[in-house]
Structure formats: C-alpha cells, structure tokens
Design a protein around this nucleic acid. Structure first.
Lengths: 343, 343
DNA sequence: TTGTAAGCGTTATCAG
DNA sequence: CTGATAACGCTTACAA
C-alpha cells in the first residue's frame, strides 16, 4: 500500500535536481526561462519523487485561488445539475477547482450572503439561475471577482441564457397554429425569490403569443403554483375544473407539464384529445412522456458559462458579455389540432 | 459600491485591538484561553474591519484543507445530483468546502486517477456510486485521507448504501404475489465500469426472487442495455417482441422502467394490462408516471455520507463503518394481477 | 492569558 | 538562465 507518508516538498526536488526551488517552480509552471537541460533534470527529479506542488502554498504565494464558486438554488434539480455538470467539465479542464454551494432554503441563503464564505477563496463566481436581490448583488461584488450568471438576464455581469419570452411565444404560436383559441398557462410563484424574473418573462411571452396570434387575454386562464410536478397537477386541475376549460395549456417548464398531463389523465381527460399541453425545456423524460416542448440546451449553457468564467479569470474587468442560446420547438404527441377544427 | 479594495489582514485586526496576531487567531477560532475582555475587543475590531481569515493561509499553516473531494461519474444524473445535494448541505454546515469532480468519460477518469489532482488538496474523499478498480483504489488511498463511498458495497472504506439485492427481491416478490409466473428483467451493461457491482447485485436479487417464489429461471428473460430511458425502451421492445413475452418486467432502475413503459405503450400494449412494470428508486417522476417501484432515499444517502465524512475528518483512522439504509415498496398503477388469474 | 517567533510550501523580485 | 531571499497570511509551540 503506497500510502504517501511524508509529503515531498519543492526543496526535495530542488536538492535532487541540483538546482534552487525557484528553478523548480519555474520549470513546473512551464515558464520559458529554463534551459532544456535543467528542465529535464527537474522533471526527472519531480517524477522520481512523484512530487506535486501544494496548491495551497502556491495559492498563498501567488494570490490566485484557481477556484470558482458555483452557487445554485437547489443542486438536485434537473436544470441546475445539468448546468453544473456542463460548467464542471470546462473548469476542470482549465485547472480550476469548483466549489459548490447549494442554497435551498432561505436561512442558508441569508447566511451565505451575510458571511460570504467565498471571500478570499475564489477567483470568480458562477450563479446558476439565481436572481440576486440588490444587497445580495452588492455582497457578491464585494468579492471583487468576475461574476457570470446563467438562466436569467443579468445586468452588470456576464450572462448566458435563453430568450425566455421567446420560448413561450413559440409555444403559444404552435398551439394557435393548431387552431386553439383558448390557451391556459401554468406559471410559478416566486420560489423564495428564485426564478422570479424567468417566471415573469415567460408570462410576458405567453401574453405576447396571444397578442401576436390575435387571441384575447383571459386572466383566469393563468394559474400560478409552486414549482414542481405536483404544482403542475394542481394547476391543471384548477384549469380543467372550470366551467369553460381551455383546449390547450402551456407550462412554464416541462416538470410542470408532466404534472399537468398526469392530472388531466387522472381526471379522465385525453391528452391531446381533450387538452393539448406544451412545456419548456425538453427534459430528459419529455420524450417518454411524449411531451411537446420548446427545447433549451442546458448542459451547453453550463459549458458556455464555464468558458466565460475561464476567460473572465484570465482577463478580469472585461465588458460584461451576454450570450443568448437558441431554442427550438419539439413537436411530440401531447399537442394536436383543437377538437372540431379542420385538420 | 463597497468593493473590497485592499484585503484586511490579521495584523490589521491585531493592531486595532491592541493585541498580537496570535490572540486574534485564538479568538477567531473560539479557543478557550482568551479573556472575555480581550475577546470582545478582538471581535469588535474584526467586525469593524469586516475581516475574515484567509482560508488559504490558514490551511497552509494548519496543514488541514477543510475541503472534501466529491467524485461522481456523472454530475447531471438523477441519483448523483441528489446524493451530492444531500452531502453538500451537511458539509457546508460543517464548514467544509466541497470540491466536485465529475468523471463522465473514460479519459477524464483516467487522467483523474493518474494525476490525482486531489493530492494535498482534501481532507477526505466521497465517491458516489463509483466502483473503483484496484489501481484506482490504491491511488485514492495514496492520498492518505479517509474515504467514504455511497451507492455500493465497499471494503476498506466507510460506505452508505442500500441492500441492492433486497430491493430487487422485493420487486419480484411483489409481482409473484400478483400471480406473475414469467418475469423479465431489464439490466444494464457496465457503463464504463461504473455501476457494475450494483447491476450484479440487482441481478442476483432478481434470481433470488425467482428462487424464493419458486419460479423457474429463463435466462432469455434478462436483457442488458446501456443505462437510460432509451435503454429501457430498447430492452422492453426486445422482451415483448418475443414469441412468449413475460407478463411482468422488473427494471434495474426507474429511468429504465420509464423507457420500458413508454415502449410497451408504443407497441400497443397496455400497462399494466398486458405487462406489469416495476422499477427501483422512486424517482421524482415515478408518481406522475404511475410507476410501481422500490423506493430508496437518495438525498438521505448523501446526508449520511456527509455525516460520515465529517466524523472521519475529525477522527481519521476509525474502523470503516457501513450504513445500509432501508427501502420500501411503493405500489402504483404500473402493476396489476396477471391477466387470467383470480383477483 | 498573552506575546514572540518559527514555520507552512510556494511564488516573485532582484541580482548575478 | 539561475539563485537568494523576501513575501504570502495564518497557526502554533514555547516563553513570559
């Protein structure tokens, strides 16, 4: 068992190679001003001792942490884990450590922004679908490091997102194109002030869709529920129990739509026969659920955010960039022409 | 904009409080040998300067990293993200940083265990459902820090898991109890050597279930596919296209079962009318899919693993513990008595 | 209880 | 191209 009992230090390597620690450091970091001969001896010595630099000492001396803080509202949810996975790959390959913070409940979040455990600890911050309050925003900027946000429009920081208004507009247009004239929407409450802006924009997209297709706005056809499958169920029940239920429903996300489809069927309604349903995301399970949806590339958002981080770490103080990724309608079996319309 | 221009150091605090840095250090770490009076002055000074210790300097001096490396095969998948989320909460509250490594493809994995970027960087390692090869195991132990594994049986390290044989046995017994005599199984290939042991144990549980209920083994009724929804679809098609298809199928996991249910329905078969399906997990979407399953508490596994980590960091060198969490059958609408049997 | 001073293992500056 | 040597910002004996 090759348990590494006493850690090797740079001095050990230097001694063995017959050079100074400064030269070892230069060599190991790939700096140009080392002769080929010396470089060889140093690398050999390092290899023989199976030496690795202590990242901690290196960080203290260089004053760079080589670490990025990734802050998410809920690490276990579909969207967030995808983004994190995408970013992780890029960061790992760039040699940056990824420090994960999941701030599910409000107290954790409050403590986080109060104490700011990221202070002196990261070179950059990635916030994943976290609308920050003004004080939170200030707190993060106190860190003095670049920030990139995903999942929502951000001002003052880099960001990668989709057109949240546009996706909903696409969904409504699809339904209107199938002849639906009364389209409901399943929206979400502010989930502890997370997601608020996205919910807002998607609602705006819904309204824009109605406007574009010349449909009247019926405020009662928009119901707001907490995020999640069971929220979707509840919303659908509320919509379909009305005396004049809509013939189609758009949901703010696929997970809500899953609940909606299930609820409709449990009520004895046929999907898409009695009611069509469209979601947003193209969740991994949307295909088996046969759900029509507007796809967004979530892992790709993480990848792009990771790249932005890497760039920002290398060139801090650059103008905030905004990257809007494309989305696309995926038609499946949960939508059909409205009953009684011409095919 | 309160951008923190010049970081405050412990010396600044010491000066302001009229004490030495040693005393500041003792105070801030809550050591007992500081007079109440001094403590007050130090805390006040620190607060006024809004000082926080540099974790990096602290780590270099104390030779403890306060960091745990979390290694997962695929950060974006349901099981892994849940475990990570559970562990994250515990670790964050214990003041430990969580360094995430997702080793999806083989080359990333190879590089990881070759270079071992965790060296000198973590106080403990958490492996999430990662069966390690012998060399990988050796490599990790080279780190000289405690290791805890989740999701599978481990020898030589702490571990938290479920009874993977038992869950499958439960599933088969449920079906046999409904009168099913010919039960198929959807199993998985080694996914880059990940999960292998789990697949093996669940297959063993399936066989044990047949034995216990007195059913004959039909090797052709076990089909292996890559993990995932589409794997489940393919497997189900292969099973149901046989001249003598089974009347029920158990899947190694819910995601496979989702695919199986969808495939059956696309083939025009009724679930559970023509074929019953059982999964393992109780995935977030199993309820809307109306899938009978054997539930495991995945977040809880992460929480318990996190606690083990915390304990192990405080008392390294303790005997490896093993924690086996309970599971439970959740009967939903994807299973029914076999057609033609008495109710 | 408190202070002094020697590390911790690098990087970085400045001569040579 | 290479080597001293002073940081880096804290912890920790050891003294007082």
């Amino acid at each position: 068992m090759a348990r590494q009992v006493e850690p090797v230090s740079m001095e050990d390597v230097a001694r063995r190679a017959g050079v100074s620690t400064a030269t070892v450091s230069r060599t190991l970091r790939g700096l140009p001003n080392v002769s080929a001969d010396t470089r060889g001896r140093v690398l050999a010595a390092a290899a023989e001792l199976s030496y690795v630099v202590s990242p901690i000492a290196s960080r203290l001396a260089s004053r760079r942490t080589h670490t990025v803080g990734v802050v998410v509202p809920h690490a276990a949810r579909w969207y967030f884990s995808k983004v994190v996975a995408g970013a992780e790959e890029v960061l790992r390959e760039a040699g940056l450590d990824l420090l994960l913070y999941s701030l599910g409940d409000l107290s954790a979040r409050t403590r986080f922004f109060d104490q700011l455990p990221l202070r002196r600890r990261v070179d950059a911050v990635l916030t994943v679908a976290m609308p920050l309050t003004e004080p939170e925003y200030e707190a993060v900027h106190t860190l003095g490091v670049p920030v990139v946000a995903t999942g929502l429009r951000a001002t003052g920081t880099h960001c990668v997102r989709i057109d949240d208004t546009g996706v909903m507009l696409t969904a409504v247009e699809h339904l209107a194109g199938l002849g639906h004239r009364r389209i409901g929407m399943i929206s979400t409450y502010a989930d502890q002030s997370m997601w608020l802006p996205v919910a807002h924009e998607r609602r705006a997209g819904y309204l824009a869709g109605l406007a574009v297709t010349g449909l009247p706005v019926e405020p009662d056809l928009v119901v707001s529920v907490p995020f999640g499958v069971s929220g979707g169920e509840r919303a659908m029940r509320r919509l379909m129990e009305r005396p004049d239920p809509p013939s189609a429903v758009v949901a703010e996300s696929d997970e809500l739509a899953f609940g909606a489809v299930a609820a409709a069927r449990r009520m004895g309604l046929a999907v898409p026969g009695d009611v069509s349903v469209v979601g947003i995301d193209d969740h991994d399970l949307s295909d088996v659920m046969d759900l029509t949806t507007v796809r967004q590339e979530v892992v790709e958002q993480g990848v792009q955010a990771g790249r932005m981080i890497v760039r920002a770490v290398q060139h801090p103080g650059e103008e905030p960039r905004e990257l809007v990724l494309p989305t696309s309608l995926v038609v499946r079996g949960s939508t059909a022409p409205v009953a009684g319309s011409s095919p």
